[in-house]
Design a binder for these strands. Sequence first.
RNA 1: GGAGACGUGGCCGAGCCAGGUUGAAGGCGCUUCCCUGCUAAGGAAGUAACGUCGCAAGGCGUUCGAGGGUUCGAAUCCCUCCGUCUCCGCCA
Length: 429
Amino acid sequence: MLDIKLIRNEPDKVRAGLVRRGDDPSAIDHVLELDSQLRAIGTERDDIRSEVNQLSKQVGELHRDGRSEDASELQARSKQLGERERELTDRAEALQADVRLALLSISNLPAAEAPDGLTEDDNVVVRVNELPADAYGDHQRVPHWEIGAELGILDVDRAVRMSGSMFAMYRGAGAHLLSALINYGLDRNRDAFEQIRPPTLVKTETMVGTGHLPKFSDDAYQVERDDLWAIPTGEVPLTSIVAGEVLDEDELPMRLMAHTSCYRREAGSAGRDTRGLLRVHEFDKVELYAFCTPDDAQSLHHEILERAEQAIVDLGLAHRVLDLACGDISGAGARTYDIEVFAPGADRWLEVSSVSWCTDYQARRANIRYRPNGQKGTEFVHSLNGSGLAVPRVWAAIVETHRQPDGSVRIPDVLQPYMGGMTAIAVPS
RNA sequence: GGAGACGUGGCCGAGCCAGGUUGAAGGCGCUUCCCUGCUAAGGAAGUAACGUCGCAAGGCGUUCGAGGGUUCGAAUCCCUCCGUCUCCGCCA
């Protein structure tokens, strides 16, 4: 969430930022109104509390001096003030909740460098490593679900039978390719990122802390009986690792990565992209994450982007990088790059990574701070996240791109060590 | 799942079942200064976060796992929840 002080001091700047996103700037006026009421009531309440504290202290002294009789008048007055105090506290708490709610619904301000525009058509293509349309042979123009069935490496039908639509099951070399991709994704970042294997079921308050609730409750799987939620992304536990903590500056930047399953109900996209692996309820992902000082944020942002991008390039896939327009950046982000790979069989670009710089927006909500060296006090950290590798779509792009005229699928060189030296997945005889 | 013990400031650890100058003793760590060929040792002072008011100095408020309750007043009493530890049971 945004800093209420920023909204107070520079409301026009905040409004301008929201307008760039296409959001309604009047939310700011609402917050300011609530905030000024809250402060007025808070001041009055604090004054009364102060008086009650004074009186109580005096009562204590009287009791100690053996003059308990003289205390009753003070006690009566204090009790009376207490009623008023309770009243004001109730109102203050209600207002506080309102302010927080209003604040939570306001998105992060886009970075100055983020491209203008409100829709995905305004996204700026930063880099393309695209082959001409006629570079793909007919053998590559086969969708992965057909290839998967032919080679016996992807069994959607049986997955659907046991779990319903939009679930998938990998078999044999297909499953091997899946685990290879995961290990490949982790190993390339092991030089700088600490690997985490977090829980994938988390408490309600954890989901709230990262902003995935209540806003996206329809899109998350809930285990009601135990009040747990299946994580929609590794970002949830990774953010929560240091939630509420004050870090030493020496601990920053803190770079974390995790391979987790991710669970999404995809409630808003029922009926869309239902074929194969384009959109599934449960998928594997290697997530890269970093907490850092504001000074380091932009260079880290580019580093994570480069790591995610290079992983795709080394797999021999056509890809492009988009600098998202203000209106297309998700709520917590100030600037986001998307990486898309081209899947020739499905004949479309697939988003495989979204690398976001969240400034201190996420940290403020999750209350993650650090102590700047040589200064007193604390500052909120900046947080960055990006998919190192979203497995199913990359799997799909590999299978389609590297399909050979004889129907076999060549394993990219960089993955062969992860598959016991296997160079291709052959057509069953 | 059953029985018990516990949860205090950056850390350790008093206080809690005698509720009132306890935002919290003492120690460690850290910062500054003094002493000192260097270092070590020693001495002095300082050392939470957040909110709010104020140009500032500073004032006020909140926080002793979380949330409620009792009271003029709660780290201290009561209730609920979360977590940790020990024992028993159960099970990968």
